[in-house]
Amino acid sequence: MIAVVDYGVGNLFSLTASLKHLGLENKVTADEKEIKKASHIILPGVGAFADAYKKLEESGLADLIKEEAAAGKPLLGICLGMQMLFDKSYEYGEHKGLGLIKGEICPIKDDLKEPLKVPHMGWNALKIVRESPLLKYTKEGEFVYFVHSYYAKNCPEAVIATSEYEIDITAAVDRGNVFGTQFHPEKSGEVGLKMLKAFAEAGR
């Protein structure tokens, strides 16, 4: 069973619909026992980093997720959920994250020379940087759907795929059993569904 962590942030409809479509048993939950029992954990998230992380911490789920990840359980952070896996974020101040992946979350705008639009929103092609269980079914150049204004930086060890938006945007990361996608696999058509399938197969 995949536990989708429910800490009161974001819309989980498409994610659970995707898992259901793939025939993957899943539960949206904030219950410690359920999360411990799960074979895999997905950490979703939209909105602002500080608010979301505060909710995660206050609910006691931040520590639980760290423990489960340390014990080797496959964990996938999506969008803001991925950003929270990192050491810290510079979204409106400096805020610490789960610290499962080395690196930091910085504003895209600061690194663009041309006046490209921020948020980086829409379908962009993946450049595969390194092999990963998460990308088992993913091919170079396939398109995924992004919506974000901040991105992960200074994390060369973790990057498995990028997308070009004048700069290389960190698209997907992994560190052992911990995975993250900046884009939304649940909104990325067949390509995204296959990635969720690959995640569910990770660690087996």
């Binding site: 409809f13 498409s14 619909a17 995707s18 259901k20 479509h21 759907y145 649940e186 909104k187 990325s188 058509g189 067949e190 995204g192 569904l193």
Partner: peptide
């Protein structure tokens, strides 16, 4: 929404 996996 339960059957399509692109933004809606």
């Amino acid at each position: 929404a339960g059957q399509i996996f692109i933004p809606l």
